[in-house]
Amino acid sequence: MNGDLLHILQFVISAVLMAGGIFFVIAGAVGVLRLPDFYTRMHAAGMTDTLGAEMILLGLIVQAGLSQTSLKLALIAFLLFLTSPTATHAVIGAAHHAGLKPKLGKYRALAPGEEPLAKSKAKAQAKSKVKSARKSRAKKRVK
């Protein structure tokens, strides 16, 4: 009776872990396909490598029970945990070093020492920007 319960628990835990791993792998694949530039894609790929693969390996360890197989799986998990973030770091570092610029939106971090704009001022600026953008668009249409 107790043994049966343990087996069911083992199965459920490993199934949940592997399902989580599969979710992260699929999320990473979608990210690699859909994200706009190199850095964001590497971010998605790094997620797949570490979190997805780790969770699948953990699920397999739970499934294998206490045996030589699970020891080997634990070693693989340990090595993957060390190497794949390092590989992502190295690839991104190389791209940054080679001068690849990330794709930036209109929001950016403050430069060191820069004061954040007051709220009303920022709003006014945003409004004026929108207005000028509209004007320029209108001009283009006229032309």
């Binding site: 090595l79 060390l82 190497t83 390092t86 770091h89 190295a90 570092g93 070093h97």
Partner: peptide, 13 residues
């Protein structure tokens, strides 16, 4: 060095 992470990890590996 900027490669401090690579150095530490490869020393372990």
């Amino acid at each position: 060095s900027p490669h401090i992470i690579l150095r530490v990890v490869s020393k372990i590996l």
